[in-house]
C-alpha cells in the first residue's frame, strides 16, 4: 500500500494486487476518519464498503498476471464523506450486478453477491463510470 496524500479533508492511497493490502487500506481509512471526528456510523459503513469493493476487485477484476493498481480517495466536508475507488481491471458496473436471491429460503441460498449488496445498502448513493480505462466507483455517505 502506498500513502499518496493525507491532508486535512482528504486521504489518497493506492494498493497493488496483494490481498493483505485490503486490511491495510481499511485501517488507513478508519484512522483518517476517526482522527477527523467523523461519526462512528459513517466510519463503520465506509470501511465495510471499502473492504467489499477492494476484495471484489482483487478477486475478479484482473485477467492477467501483470501489475495493477487501485487508487482510493476519501474526501469529507460538513455534510458528507465521499469515497472514490478506481481500478484498471476489466469493465465492471457495480450498479448492474444482481442482488442475492432473497426469495429463496435461507438454507438453500448461497452467499454470493453479498458484498455488493452491502455496498449498495450501506451507502447513501453509489455512482459508477468507466473512464480512461478504469472503473470509477464513487460512494457517498451522509455525516451527522
Amino acid at each position: 500500500m502506498v500513502l499518496v496524500s493525507d491532508e486535512a479533508r482528504s486521504l489518497h492511497i493506492a494498493i497493488g494486487r496483494d490481498m493483505a493490502d485490503v486490511g491495510r487500506a481499511n485501517r488507513s481509512l478508519e484512522e483518517f476518519l476517526e482522527s477527523r471526528a467523523v461519526d462512528a456510523q459513517a466510519t463503520f459503513a465506509a470501511t465495510v464498503v471499502l473492504e467489499e469493493i477492494l476484495t471484489n476487485i482483487l478477486k475478479y477484476a484482473y485477467e492477467d498476471g501483470g501489475p495493477h493498481e487501485v487508487r482510493i480517495g476519501a474526501e469529507i466536508d460538513a455534510r458528507e464523506l465521499v469515497l472514490q475507488i478506481a481500478d484498471d481491471g476489466r469493465p465492471f458496473d457495480i450498479l448492474a450486478a444482481p442482488a442475492p436471491d432473497f426469495d429463496r429460503p435461507v438454507e438453500c441460498r448461497d452467499a454470493g453477491g453479498l458484498g455488493i449488496h452491502l455496498v449498495r445498502a450501506l451507502a447513501q448513493r453509489v455512482e459508477y463510470r468507466r473512464a480512461g480505462g478504469r472503473n470509477v466507483v464513487t460512494v457517498h455517505f451522509s455525516l451527522k
Binding site: 463503520f44 465495510v48 473492504e51 435461507v106 452467499a111 453479498l114 452491502l118
Partner: peptide, 18 residues
C-alpha cells in the same frame, strides 16, 4: 466489525448446524 466474508462464515456455520 464484520464484512461479507465474516457473514459467509456465520452463514456456512448456520447451514452446517442445520
Amino acid at each position: 466489525y464484520i464484512s461479507s466474508m465474516g457473514i459467509r462464515v456465520l452463514f456456512k456455520t448456520f447451514k452446517a448446524l442445520r
